[in-house]
Simulated scan of single mutants.
Amino acid sequence: MTYMKNVSGFIGAIAATVTLITTAPDAHAEALTLTDIAGRQVTLPEMPDKIVLGEGRMMYGIAPLVDGNPFEKIVGWKDDLVLYDPDAFRKFEAAFPEDAARMINFGNPYAGDFSIEAVLEAEADLVLLDVGNLFKAEETGLIEKLDKAGVSVVFIDFRRNSTENTVPSLLILGRLLGEEVNAMEFVDFYIGEMRRVSNVVDQIPAEERPLVVMENAPGWDPEFCCRSFGPYNYGRFVELAGGRNFGSTLSSAYSVTLSLEGIIEADPEHIIGTGANWAEAKPEVTATLLGYEADPVVNAEKIQALASRSGFADMRAVKEGNYHSIYHQFYNSPYHFIAVQQIAKWLYPDEFEDLDPQETFDRMHARFMPYENSGQFWLSASAPGN
């Protein structure tokens, strides 16, 4: 049957182009067919009820779509959520302690520690993978092995081409979880919040847009400078927020390596780094520890230290109070509209005077998430002398 729903906002404008939801299965049909983000047509013999997550952080996309328990159909994952965003893991753990405890760590799907035998023992009927690792999954024969074992594979993407693939990925998850209506509602929310920025930024001439250096996880390796993004992920977030991403001027690749000398010569108006609570998995990090349990006092010290690194202290962005840090994990979640809003507010404080990303994030949690918002997800270094 044709799946149709009258929804206010921007859903109507995209519904005709999102082919994966054009025809939804009848509630009593046995098979479920969809096209995943890799362009593969996948047919599941029935709705999946035991799902393995190729990355634990896929819970970012699942949680806002499910009424009740987002772990209901999840049997296990790779433990990246536990290791690299322990604040978020503990939010889930506090809300669903028994489910968090029963999660099987299947290991890295693209490495030797991933056990197909464990997947079969768990009687899983679906493995969700990240499309950025499609080549690895093909090269290792993972897709073929799982297929022969009768386990379907579906690719989604909240990271590589995140702004392009978030909507179809959410709709795919909605189909797989039987939460199509909730998925449509979150998509409508997502598009509406992105439009609050694009409706303003689209009016700003290209020559008036500030140059931004996006630093990927400064302090992850305290002795290294600097990782950045090309026109993908946070690089794309900067562009959508009305900035010129320095990394995009150097390469069209996903990841770009910058030299300190190159940053100094570029003289960006803003520098934005990413941070998260990596200290539990990697105690030597000097990054800002942003997330649900972040301590603003600790992070104020950490960002000042990052801004005071050799070569950075004399940059215009630092001197003018435009050295910023933002939650790294927005890069791998459908919540990246929060990052776009906050970056836009940094770049154009007058134009976005009435935009409050914190209020948006709180409202998102209240409406869609199984736990309350808390912590700190962005901050700026004080200009010298302030």
Rank of each mutant, 00 (worst) to 15 (best):
I303Q: 03
H28M: 01
V285K: 01
H336P: 05
D202M: 12
F237L: 15
P370K: 03
E320P: 03
L177Q: 01
G61Q: 03
E180Y: 00
P97H: 05
D67P: 01
M194Q: 06
V119Q: 10
E144M: 00
K5S: 15
Q376N: 13
A15F: 10
Q358C: 03
D87Q: 07
V197S: 05
A287W: 03
F71L: 12
E284V: 02
D267M: 00
L134F: 07
S115E: 10
E138K: 01
T43R: 11
V66F: 11
E139T: 00
F237T: 09
V181C: 02
E139H: 00
Q376S: 11
D350T: 13
V151T: 10
F155V: 01
E215Q: 06
G291K: 00
F10Q: 14
A317D: 09
F96S: 05
I14Q: 13
H28C: 01
L44F: 09
E72C: 02
D362Q: 15
E98Q: 12
T2P: 11
R236V: 06
N332P: 05
P210H: 08
A29V: 02
H324Y: 10
V318D: 08
M1S: 13
V297M: 13
L290V: 06
P70R: 04
T249Y: 14
D202R: 08
V75E: 11
A137Y: 00
A281N: 08
P222M: 09
E30D: 11
S228G: 14
M103L: 15
L250F: 13
F352D: 06
R244Q: 12
F229A: 11
N69F: 08
E239I: 06
A15C: 08
T22R: 11
Y60S: 08
E239D: 13
A149I: 07
R363A: 15
D314W: 11
D147E: 15
L173N: 07
S248D: 13
M59K: 04
L81D: 02
R227L: 12
A100C: 11
D80C: 03
E280M: 11
V213D: 09
